[in-house]
């Protein structure tokens, strides 16, 4: 039924009505040859308001989302040099006659030769993967319990999940510094109750990064899980119990498999951005917490090597393109079945 919208924005005037102000203006302007020519051209090209409506956000996204990626891609093949901007042009006219094209794969070679980059990529995937798993383990019971609450309570709980999701990411990460550092609140508390005799060093370790990611991305996990569990037909559980299945096995056999779409969506939503995370490893991680987002940042801001950071970005994107496409497919499928 795609064509039903075809009539949505038709440019010609309805014949059954007296012409409005625009209609009469149009009629009088038709006497003016250039206008008539333009109107004729427009009508002949089949251009409609519908197309104009589509064009506005479309062009914006092409200009500010897609084109920038192509520029990153192009730049990743250029050479670093000390200049403003700090890269050598790829296309250059020599003697106003020859077009010189200089594509360098040096940046990519460096990425594969220097183990720092490979390690950073692998480490990012590992940290993001472990954090995603932890987020799921913590988020699922919360989402599940939220659904069990009365509708009124449920709404309040939902708001409580959404609230930190909106609150400044930076501030929430920052809050953990005060808690995790050697003379921080957690150590002070543990020392006071006598559980430890010496402060634990938590800040600037991988543990702090895990805590930071789980904490920051928990709402991204809970929300799709909650949305999925809330829609679930609870008579299915009743049917299972009626057929002799105890509540705990019923959860494993009915609820969990049916909530799989929510689990998948939540995991993608945590994993994909976590791989490229910068703020959390930078503020909570240590000097040996290698994550690719941080590497890119350093190359760009500290070393001013734009071509190399572009190459890092291209590889990071290649790494993420599979999960991103999978995620979009998944979302589309869920949206269609809804």
């Amino acid at each position: 039924m795609s064509e039903q919208n075809e009539i949505g924005f038709i440019s010609n005037d309805p014949p059954h009505r007296a012409p409005g102000p625009i209609g009469s203006l149009h009629a009088s302007l038709l006497a003016y040859t250039p206008y008539r020519w333009l109107a004729g051209k427009l009508a002949a090209s089949g251009l409609r308001v519908r197309h104009l409506v589509i064009a506005v956000p479309y062009i914006w996204l092409l200009l500010f989302f897609l084109a920038p990626f192509l520029i990153v891609f192009k730049l990743s093949f250029s050479e670093y040099r000390i200049a403003i901007p700090p890269y050598a042009p790829i296309f250059e006219f020599i003697d106003q006659t020859y077009l010189q094209v200089r594509l360098s794969i040096d940046n990519y070679r460096l990425l594969f030769q220097d183990s720092l980059y490979i390690q950073a990529y692998l480490n990012s995937v590992r940290v993001a993967g472990i954090s995603t798993l932890l987020t799921l383990l913590i988020g699922y019971p919360i989402a599940y319990s939220m659904v069990k609450a009365r509708p009124r309570t449920r709404f309040i709980l939902l708001m409580l999940v959404i609230l930190p999701f909106w609150t400044s990411f930076l501030i929430r990460v920052y809050a953990w510094i005060g808690i995790l550092k050697n003379e921080g609140l957690l150590n002070a508390f543990l020392l006071k109750i006598g559980l430890i005799s010496e402060p634990l060093s938590l800040l600037n370790t991988d543990i702090a990064v895990y805590i930071g990611i789980v904490y920051s991305y928990l709402p991204f996990m809970i929300l799709p899980l909650y949305a999925n569990l809330e829609k679930m037909d609870m008579s299915l559980i009743e049917a299972a119990t009626d057929l002799g299945c105890k509540p705990v096995p019923a959860f494993w056999k009915i609820t969990l498999p049916l909530s799989l779409p929510g689990i998948v969506a939540g995991c993608f939503l945590v994993f994909i951005p976590a791989v490229g995370e910068f703020v959390i490893p930078d503020l909570l991680g240590g000097p040996d917490t290698l994550m690719i987002g941080k590497v890119l940042w350093t190359e760009f801001f500290n070393n001013l090597d734009w071509p190399l950071s572009s190459a890092v970005a291209v590889l990071l994107l290649l790494l993420l393109i599979v999960p991103i496409v999978l995620f979009q497919r998944h979302q589309q499928k869920t949206a269609e079945s809804h």
Partner: peptide
Amino acid sequence: VMPEVITGLSLLL
């Protein structure tokens, strides 16, 4: 879902 570092870098360029 795009990592912010990529979006930021590409827009700057």
